[in-house]
Amino acid sequence: MSKVVGVLGQFRDPTALVHGAEAVRDAGYKQWDTHSPFPIHGMDQAMGMKRSGLGYFIGLCAFLGAATGFGLQSWAHAIAYPAIIAGKPLFAWQAYIVITFALLVLFGAIGSVIGMLLFNRLPRFHHPVFYSDRFESCSDDGFFISIEADDPQFDQENTVRLLKEAGALAVDILEETDE
């Protein structure tokens, strides 16, 4: 028993890949991706990608970090363990700014790594594209578009035709087998 999970088209070069991506974008697909050995300028636009929301996630983390830093120091110094240090008042907010800033940066940095993984749905140890032997060349000189079967527009015949018309040299059907 095997199940089609997607199709994979190989393209000649970066330019062909960008044109292929534009065709797939214009056909209205949502569950698809491009694969290349190196970043290609203008690919985001060719794929019609929206700006990532990662920045807002990092912003939220950074704000939480600043709030934690400032809150913890204020609470410890002014409420939990009130002590006059170096002649400063109990709530010496100026002194807290450095740690507040440091935690803002720290939470923001950690948030950007975690957010990047979350937004990319990583870690992920397998992907249907690896069913194709052709895909090995993706780390060398292969340029690919994969379209997944759970895309609402997916129709094996039409999707393969679309990729071929968009300039794919070869199209593989990605099949998952129960073993």
């Binding site: 170096a86 002649g87 400063k88 100026q94 002194a95 700014i97 450095v98």
Partner: peptide
């Protein structure tokens, strides 16, 4: 500007 203020505030 914050650094300049901070150090002067701190050493007092």
């Amino acid at each position: 500007g914050g650094s300049q203020y901070f150090f002067i505030w701190y050493t007092n």
